[in-house]
Amino acid sequence: MEYLEVLLPSATLAVLFYFVMRTILNADRSEREAMSRARELRVEEDRSHDEPTETSGPESGPDIDGTNSAK
C-alpha cells in the first residue's frame, strides 16, 4: 500500500495532464479547420466580386459630370 500512496499523486497528475493536453490539441485543430474554412470562403467571395457583372457597362455608371442618365 505504501507504493500506491507514493505513486497515486504522480499518476493523477499524469492523467490530468493527458486530458488537458488532449483538450488543447483538439481546440487547436478545430481552430485551424475554422480558419481554413474562413480562408476558403474569403477566396470564393473575392472571386465572385472580381467577376464582371452584366450591369457593368457605360449605361449603368455615372456620366462624366457625375450624374446617372440611365434613370
Rank of each mutant, 00 (worst) to 15 (best):
G61W: 13
P52N: 02
L41P: 00
S10N: 03
P58D: 10
E40L: 13
Y3T: 08
M1P: 04
E40N: 11
A38I: 11
T67W: 03
T55I: 10
I24H: 07
T23E: 08
R47V: 03
T23R: 11
T55M: 07
H49S: 05
D63A: 14
M21T: 03
F17W: 08
I24C: 04
R47L: 14
D63L: 13
F17E: 11
E59N: 13
E33A: 08
N26W: 09
R39Q: 09
P58F: 07
F19C: 00
L8M: 00
G57S: 14
R39K: 12
A34F: 09
A34R: 15
E59Q: 06
V15S: 09
R32N: 09
R37C: 03
P52M: 08
D63F: 02
M35K: 15
L4S: 06
N68E: 03
S69E: 12
S30Q: 01
L7D: 07
E51G: 05
E44P: 02
T67E: 13
M1Q: 03
N68M: 09
V43G: 01
L16Q: 09
E44Q: 15
P52Q: 03
A14L: 11
V6T: 13
V15H: 02
D28T: 12
E45P: 00
E2P: 02
D28V: 05
T67H: 07
R42I: 07
A70D: 13
V43K: 09
D46L: 15
H49Q: 15
T55C: 06
E59D: 08
S56G: 02
A27V: 02
D65P: 03
R37N: 10
R37I: 01
P52S: 10
T53H: 01
E40S: 12
L8Y: 04
E5V: 02
E5P: 00
V6C: 06
T53F: 05
N26L: 14
F17N: 10
F19H: 00
R32S: 09
S30K: 00
H49G: 04
A34W: 11
A70Q: 10
L25G: 00
L16E: 09
S60H: 12
A11F: 08
T55F: 14
D65L: 01
T55G: 07
D63Q: 11
E44G: 06
R39I: 05
R29A: 11
E59G: 08
R32A: 09
L25P: 02
T12S: 10
E54R: 11
Y18N: 01
D63C: 08
L4C: 00
N26Q: 06
D28I: 03
D28P: 01
M1G: 14
G66K: 09
R29T: 11
S60W: 12
D63G: 15
P9H: 08
F19D: 00
D46E: 15
D28K: 13
N26K: 12
V6M: 13
S69I: 06
A14N: 03
R39N: 07
A11G: 04
S10K: 10
Y18W: 01
R37H: 04
S36W: 06
T12A: 10
V20C: 05
S48A: 15
V6G: 01
E33P: 01
A14F: 07
S10L: 12
G61S: 09
E40I: 12
V43L: 06
S30H: 01
N26A: 08
A11Q: 07
S36N: 10
A11D: 06
